[in-house]
Design a protein around this nucleic acid. Structure first.
Lengths: 188, 188
DNA sequence: AGCAAAACGGCGGGCCCCGCCGTTTATGAC
DNA sequence: GTCATAAACGGCGGGGCCCGCCGTTTTGCT
């Protein structure tokens, strides 16, 4: 949001964002932009001015949650047994991805990127924040050294997408993630 | 496809299905039904008559592959070391899910189901066919007894969805699945 | 050949996204 | 307070999509 923005524009931005949070929660990442405009009481062009793409809107919708998760990762760093700490944080990502619809979509590429190198500030922020957690767990030999945070986040996003329409999405997402974390068929 | 169907209807069905396979491969599970009608040279109502929902179309598109995978599971049953056999089959599912777009979508609920109990003949067919592979691996203690085939297929579907727009979707999907299979942080 | 029913496709309705442009509104300078 | 300017607005049209409808066409059987 640029400096020197007019007050009315700012008000509209906040209003649209608040409505978008609710609409995405109700209808998922494909919630109608025109419906968001209607509910917010603005024209559809106004929605587009503030959020030039669906992805931009979803990123804004998820921004607070991504900040919360990043803060949480920083809180957890160095606080306990490394494996359990990492798992606790990842379980919070799973929980958010499964309950806050739209988050999974911004954690992975959506095919609309012009420059792959410039995408995914959202995932990058989470990776940066959780990097110490992963490093501790790898250093302790508790976690596969091959897994990157990008892998972990993509896996969680995929699980959230696959379970979105299950009767209890969050429970199913946690179940699948737990299976993957522990390993479906670990080698001894 | 009903018995006693007219020859023209049959020809249209096959034509639409052939075009749908290509369009879904090119554009993913959300390929436009109208575009499929145009390319097939039929009216959009004809597409709907033969495939009353998008899911029905995707299931038909994926039918051959699901049959192939089911056949493959039956071929593999009892042929070797149980863990490796199961993994080989699952890797074929990963490969198909990542390269044949549309398959992931039919492996999980899509929110449109009226009766949950009647859905997912596709996943059920794969589960049935691969059940002996999983049982062997569980019996041998090579695979977690908690994982069901429904879990495995949902996980693979999620991975395919999350990696769909990566530069090399198949490689990324295999990577993520391998991590999950071996375990991100197996307990000793 | 005639008939009945299956199968067809064009159309309208509603919705969505997107770009456009005349109108409105907020802001800063005087 | 006034005025000018540019930011911001919203309505509209275009194109696309999905869906239901219904008159027309086509097939297959007698």
């Amino acid at each position: 949001m640029p400096e020197g923005q007019r007050a009315d524009a700012r008000r509209n931005y906040e209003r649209i964002l608040a409505v978008a949070v609710d609409e995405v929660a109700a209808h998922g990442a494909n919630a109608s932009l025109e419906q968001i405009a209607r509910v917010a009481g603005v024209g559809s062009a106004t929605v587009r001015r503030h959020f030039p793409s669906r992805r931009a809107l979803l990123e804004a919708v998820s921004h607070k949650r991504i900040e919360d998760l990043s803060d949480r990762a920083r809180e957890l760093a160095g606080t306990g047994e490394s494996r359990a700490t990492l798992l606790a944080w990842l379980n919070e990502v799973v929980e958010y991805s499964a309950t806050a619809r739209g988050l999974a979509a911004v954690l992975v590429p959506d095919g609309g990127e012009v420059e792959p190198a410039q995408v995914n500030g959202c995932a990058a922020a989470l990776e940066d924040a959780a990097s110490p957690l992963l490093q501790d767990a790898v250093r302790d030999g508790a976690v596969s050294s091959e897994a990157t945070l990008a892998d972990l986040l993509a896996l969680i996003a995929g699980i959230a997408m696959a379970t979105e329409h299950y009767p209890d999405p969050a429970a199913q997402a946690h179940r699948l993630f737990q299976l993957a974390f522990t390993g479906l068929a670990p080698q001894h």
